[in-house]
Structures are given as structure tokens and as C-alpha cells.
Design a protein around this nucleic acid. Sequence first.
DNA 1: CTGAAAGCGCTTACAG
DNA 2: CTGAAAGCGCTTACAG
Lengths: 363, 363
Amino acid sequence: MTDQYADSELDPSRKVKLFHHMTTIYDIAKAANSSTASVSRVMNGKAGVKPETAARIHKAMGDLNFQPRWRVMEQNRLVVLIPNYKRALESSYIARILSGITDTAFKMGYNIQLRPFNTKNCNPKHLRQMLIQEAAAGCLIISLNENYFPSADIDLTSLPHVIVGHKQKDNGINQIFIDDFKAGYDATKYLIDIGHQQIGIVSFSQIDIGHKARCNGFRKALQEAKLDTNESIELDDASIDAGRSAARHLFNLQKHPTALVITNEDLAIGFQLEAKTMGITVPNDISIVTFEESDLPSLLDTPMTAMRTPSYSMGIAATRTLEEQIENSKKDKQAGPIESLSESITIPLVVRKSTQKLKQIKI
Amino acid sequence: MTDQYADSELDPSRKVKLFHHMTTIYDIAKAANSSTASVSRVMNGKAGVKPETAARIHKAMGDLNFQPRWRVMEQNRLVVLIPNYKRALESSYIARILSGITDTAFKMGYNIQLRPFNTKNCNPKHLRQMLIQEAAAGCLIISLNENYFPSADIDLTSLPHVIVGHKQKDNGINQIFIDDFKAGYDATKYLIDIGHQQIGIVSFSQIDIGHKARCNGFRKALQEAKLDTNESIELDDASIDAGRSAARHLFNLQKHPTALVITNEDLAIGFQLEAKTMGITVPNDISIVTFEESDLPSLLDTPMTAMRTPSYSMGIAATRTLEEQIENSKKDKQAGPIESLSESITIPLVVRKSTQKLKQIKI
DNA sequence: CTGAAAGCGCTTACAG
DNA sequence: CTGAAAGCGCTTACAG
């Protein structure tokens, strides 16, 4: 830098030029013995340039390390905000939603721009700025819990967006989310319907991935059936290992419930694996219902009964909804206030081998 | 459109204006009672605009549906080319590589741009055009087989790029890939070392994900030990269901090998599950070694012995290598020819419960 | 298919 | 913190 300034003292008029100089289409045109018009056409992949000319231009671009300073935006991007933790894309929940999003977006001609999600940026101002900076037509947010938009008076209706996954408060937000309360309720109701009366729950202490709402559904179902929670284990971790420790804890008690709701698949997998190691037979000794996002629960030695999240379809639905918003905002630029969309998804129960009717009926 | 033209007939001078008119920063400045300079500052998130002014500008942007026609590029993107098939991102192989890429790229301050991979675009000209169009500093290509760059005289050295996954021919390409031949060899060598002499293979008829190279490694190991392939099953599909059908086929034969190499995890999972259903005990009746990309093989009832692909680390390594290339190309713009990098990865064997020493020793 | 030249929308150095 | 104005690099209508 110092050198450049020193040089430029010799020729003050070149000061700015020297300091700022980077390759422009003018340089390319010169090097390729062509014009800026043709370089521009090649840059943008437009037809009507002789192959030889295009080749010379491409060569010059490579030789001079050309990168344009700006270009006309095409708005062919959708930004997807990814939960900001390590190895996030390996979670089946996120991978499947994202898979639904990319498959649909690619088919529609959009590209996908991934960005880490940042709680601080969850307001209309920052989101709009991000869309502008990324030249994006809209954004999709994969949510893990209900706290993505903490402010009560948020209103995103003027920005094309869809939040997909778990529910946010209903304040001017477009979202497609799992009805976790109902899922918890349905899972529990099923156990009650097949005769269980001593039902416990294994859950996670954090609000993420609907654990809390699932627990509330669980309690509601027991209440309606006038039953008490038999055993409730709450863990600080929602991993396979945590599930194993829950099993050790439960089966070292004097008595244990005849059925269990486990609020996510990793906990359930760990629990069932460890139960087996301890000589407990599922479903003979205990029935288990869980919530699943991958194929794993169905491939265990005892395939598990589970509430199944349709993550891939949710990704597709979210992308289609976003596309509608984008098209609408193109049509009537001065349209009146748009109603925000809030679509709740009821997820199905898949009955497999980890549950069975209660055998001992008291007379 | 017709209406606009009709209107414009009244005032020919406005023809172009009317047809092309979209909101510009000039309109925003007017609506927000400010100047284009301030609008530009707000757009780019620069400091030095009074909050109230910025708020007026943001409001105007929302009201007028503003999107800039272009902006100064920041080259803060990396393009990742994703294999172009449905639900690609759900495959553990791709998800984990991508997870390594995004975690590393985000940490470095890059964003990730996803694009479907297209065989036709696999030449320096199209790749360069794509980098320009996406305002990207470089690209990462997740490869499934060796045929991504069919042309023999390709030379990508002037473009920052890394191909990660399975090997391409070595012609001016930077790549990080699994040594599938050695992996097949090592898996087989292990079975031989623990006493097996009747060893079969279950594989896939396509070239993808290293099946062919793994088979070649398998044959080489048998050859060296002067053994013949006991049974070889080649399937047209590499799914869990195909694995199940392979098991039905094998165990309906009069005799079956004492050990088996299965060239991917889905085939192996299906095979082992079906074997169990048929009353075959692994590893007592047959030992199985497979190749794994997810946690699934380790969570089965009989956890499987497998060659483990370090996909996440490969994603990290590829991103770091790409970043080095980008930094180098920034430093010396007219540097001489760069040597292409070709890094082969030897993957480890994880011994679990699906293999055991051969019991019956012939005297 | 090409290039000279006008024009576009955005950025920025500068003065206040 | 602001705006008038010059300037930037790219695009495009037009003529050939």
C-alpha cells in the first residue's frame, strides 16, 4: 500500500486508479481484441457471439482473473436460514426439509442460498436487508422452536417468507408447522386406547423440536382419561446416550410403567437399545411410542411405533407457498395488507412392533 | 403489457421508461424524503444514517417493493454442485459432506450457494460462467462416480475448485476422494486374516459410490491369498430392499460363503435384516463387512463391521483446500501454472459384531 | 456477429 | 448525518 502511494506521487492523476484498479470488462475487451459489448454478452451467457470471439474472451477472463464488480440481478435465489449449530445439516429433520426445499426450488428454476440463522437478525429490517444483499426473491427459515421471533409486534407480511418446522407466535408470520401438541396427545391417546393406564414420559428439558408441546399433549390426554403420569424423566440432552441413561434409570426403579411416550427418536433409540441390553423386552415388558424424523426407528430390531414427521413434504409445501407469495408480490405491487398464513400439520401415527395391547386386565 | 404500450402511445418519449420502469433508489429517496446516497448506505448496511432516516427508507423499500437492479459483488459465496437426483440431500453421504462444507464455510465467512449438478456443464468455460453469474469465489463439487469430467483434456487449474467424494481421472483437477480400491482390498483382507476362505460379494451394477473400485479391491485381495470368489451377487439397485432380495437369493442356495463383503450400507442393512428374518445368525452363520456413511449400521441389532467414510471431515478438508486456492489466486494474479492437487483418503475399518473368526478349522 | 456510444442504477468523495 | 454531483462498471439499442 505504501509503495503504491509512493509510486502515485510521481503521477498524482493516477492515484485513485492505481489504488482501486481491478480488472474490468474494458480490460478484457482490450486483451481479447473485442468490445465491452461482447464481453458483457459472454459474461451473461447471451447468444450472438462467435465461438472464437467468446473463446478469446474466456481466455482473457482466466488470464486476467476477471470477476465483475456487479451484475444485473436475476432474483433467482431463495435464501434458506439454517439453524446455527454444528453438523446441523446431518440431522434428518433438517436434511429432509432442506431436501424438499431444494428439489422443489431447482424444479422452479431457483437456486438455494444457505445462511446460518442468527437470532439477532430476526426482524423485518434485517431480513429485508439480507434479501437485498443476497439478491434473493424470498426466504425460508427452518425453525427448531417457537422463539425465533421473540418480539410480539413483528410483521413480516411485506417480505416473501415462510417459516417451516415448529410453530412461532402468530403475529404476521407465514408458517407451516407440526402440531406438536396434537402429536403428543395422539401418541398418548393411542396407548390409552390399547389399554395402558400406567404411562410414563421421557423428554428433553429444552423447548426445541416440540418437546414441550408434545409433553403438554401427553398430559392433556392423561387428564381426559383421568389418569396420572406414572413416571416422568426429563433429560438435559436429547441424544441416543441420554436415552440409554433414561432406560438405566427407569429399570432400576422398583416398578416401571407399562407404556412410555418418548419425545424424540434419538432418545427412543437409545432407550430401546439399552432396555434390550438390560434384558427388558419391548413390547412385552413395556410399550414405547416415539416421534420420528428418519428411517432409523423402523429399522431397529424391534421397529418402533412412532408419530412420523413428513419433513420432505413440509419442505415442498413451504417452497410452493413462498413461490406463491413471490408471484403475488410481483403482480400487485401496491396490494393491500396480506393476511398471514399459518398452516398446522397433523402428523400420522405409524404402528409397528414396539407397542402392544396391555395383557393383564384387572377384573 | 398491451395497456402500457397503449398508454405510451400518448407520450412516445416515455415508451421505454414505462415499459422498463421498476423501483430504483431514486424512487426510494423521493418517497423517504432523503437522497440516493443515504438509500445506498442503508441498502449496504453501512453506518452513518440516522435511525429515523433509515426507518423511513426501510418503510419506503417495503411499500414500493424495492429490489436493487445490481449491487457491488462481495465474492463471499462458494457454489456447491449437488448430484442432480431427487432427495439427494437426504443421503447421509451427501448430507455429511455438505455439513462439513457449510460448517467450515460459514466459519470462514462464506455463504453457500447450492446448484444442481449438470454433466453438460462440466467444462472450464461453463464452470467459469457459473462462478461469474453466481458471484462466487470458487466451487465445490460433490461427486458420486468417476465420470464427472468425461473429456480427457480438461484443465480446471485456473478456476478455484475442489471435487470431493469419488475419484475423477487426473487431468488438471483438484480432488479429495476415497481410495475405494484400497477400501475394498482392506475389507476383504480383514476377512481373510480372521480365517475365512469362502468369501462372497454383494454389489451394485453401476459405477456410483465406488462399488466397482471396491469390487476390484476385493478381487485383488482374494487373488493375493490365492482364493476364488465364492459367490458374487450384483444388483441393479443399491437399496435396503435390494439387500433383502440378495439375502433371500443367497440363503436359498445349497451352500453359502462363510463371509461376505457388501459394497454399501443400504444393501448390507437389508441383507442383515432379511437374514435374521430367515433364521440366519450373523456372525455365527456368516460374517459381513460393509461400507458405511451413516450411524445406522452401528445401531442395528448386530452392529456391523464396516469401512467408515469420513464424509464430514472430507467436506471440511475440501473447503479448506478451496479457500487456499482462492487466497493464492488473489495474491499472485499472474502466477505460473498451478499443480493440480489429488488427495486420496484411506478409510478405516471399524470392527463391530457382524464378523468373527472362522470357527471350523480344517486339519 | 460486432462495436461505438448513450444510458442505467448504484456508489462515493466531498462539502457542509 | 446528509445530499448534490461526479464517476463507476456494466448493459443495450442501434447501425452496420
